[in-house]
Design a protein around this nucleic acid. Structure first.
Lengths: 152, 152
DNA sequence: TTCCTTGCAAAGGATTTGCACACCC
DNA sequence: GGGTGTGCAAATCCTTTGCAAGGAA
C-alpha cells in the first residue's frame, strides 16, 4: 500500500467537509479502496473492493462517490477501449497518458514532453489551442512471462 | 462531393459481391451517405442522411451495414469523447489521429511520424511492441469565426 | 425460388436517477 | 429532528439481436 494513502484519505475528508458533505462508512470504504489500489479501477472493481469492508454497499453509491471525487478534482476518469469508466487519483499539476498491455491488461503510465510539444505545434498550425488530449498506446509485452502483470 | 466517391462505391459493391452479399437500396443509400460525406459521422448522422433517399430505412440497418464495412476493412470506427461511435472511410495503409475543435465540434485529422516514433520508443522501454494507439487532441479555435466549421 | 435483408421491437450492458428508508450531525 | 446519504429498482442511452415479412439474384 502506498505510504501516502493516509494523506489522500485526509484530503478526501477535508474535501467533504469543505463541501458540507458527510463522511459516511460507505464513502470511507470506497475512498480506501480507491486510494489503496494502484488506480485505473472500474466502478465494478471499486464496488467489489469496498464491499470487503462494507458488504451492503450498493453500486449507485460507488458511482455517486466517484462522481463526487471526479467533479471535485480528486479523481480522474478515463474511458479506455474496454468501454468501462476507470478512475485514478488526480495528482496536483501532474499529467500522464497510458500504455495498455494487451497481454495482461495492465495499465502503465507514461509522460512525454516531446509529444506534448508536437501536439501544441499541430494545434497551432490550425490556429487552435490545446485544452486536453487523450493518448493511449496499446502494446504487446514481448516477454513470455509478461513482467507488467500487476502484483495484485 | 469528393471525386472518388464513385470509386469507393464501386469498391463497396465489389466487396459485397466477394462476400456473397446483396446490393440493396438501403446499403446503397448508406454507402452514399458515408462516402459522400467528409467522414466522422455517427450512426444517427448516417441514418438521417440515408433517409433522405430511403425514408423507410431503419437504425438497425445502418448499424449492420457500418459493422459490415468496419469488419470488412472499408471503414474505421472511432469512439471520441462524446461516447458515440463514428466512422470514416478506411484508406489503404493510411493512418491518422484526430484534432477535435471544442468550439464547433469539427473533427480534423493529423499525422505525426515524430509522435509515432516516440510511442515506439516508450513501448520499447517496457519491452513492449505497439499494436495500435488512440490519440485525440481537444482544442479551441482561436478565431472568433472558427474557420474549422464544416462547410455543411 | 431461395436465402439474404430489413424493420420493428425487444434485449443487453453500462450508467444515471427517483424514491422511501436509514443515518449522521 | 431535519436534511443528507443509501440501496433498490427503474429509467436512460447507445448498441446489438430475434423474428417474421420483404426483396435481390
Amino acid at each position: 500500500m502506498p505510504t501516502d494513502t493516509a494523506q489522500q484519505l485526509q484530503r478526501f475528508h477535508a474535501f467533504l467537509s469543505g463541501e458540507g458533505l458527510k463522511v459516511t462508512r460507505q464513502r470511507q470504504a470506497i475512498a480506501e479502496a480507491f486510494y489503496g489500489s494502484g488506480g485505473h479501477l472500474s466502478l465494478r472493481d471499486l464496488l467489489d473492493l469496498a464491499r470487503e469492508s462494507e458488504p451492503s454497499i450498493g453500486y449507485a453509491t460507488v458511482y455517486r462517490t466517484m462522481r463526487l471525487l471526479a467533479d471535485g478534482g480528486l479523481a480522474t476518469e478515463h474511458q479506455f477501449a474496454d468501454g468501462h469508466a476507470r478512475f485514478e487519483p488526480a495528482e496536483e499539476g501532474e499529467h500522464h497518458d497510458h500504455l495498455i498491455c494487451l497481454t495482461c491488461g495492465h495499465i502503465l503510465e507514461f509522460e512525454s514532453d516531446a509529444i506534448e510539444q508536437i501536439q501544441d505545434r499541430i494545434a497551432a498550425d490550425y490556429k487552435m489551442k490545446v485544452k486536453s488530449h487523450r493518448h493511449e498506446i496499446y502494446a504487446e509485452c514481448l516477454r513470455t512471462d509478461c513482467v507488467n502483470r500487476p502484483s495484485a
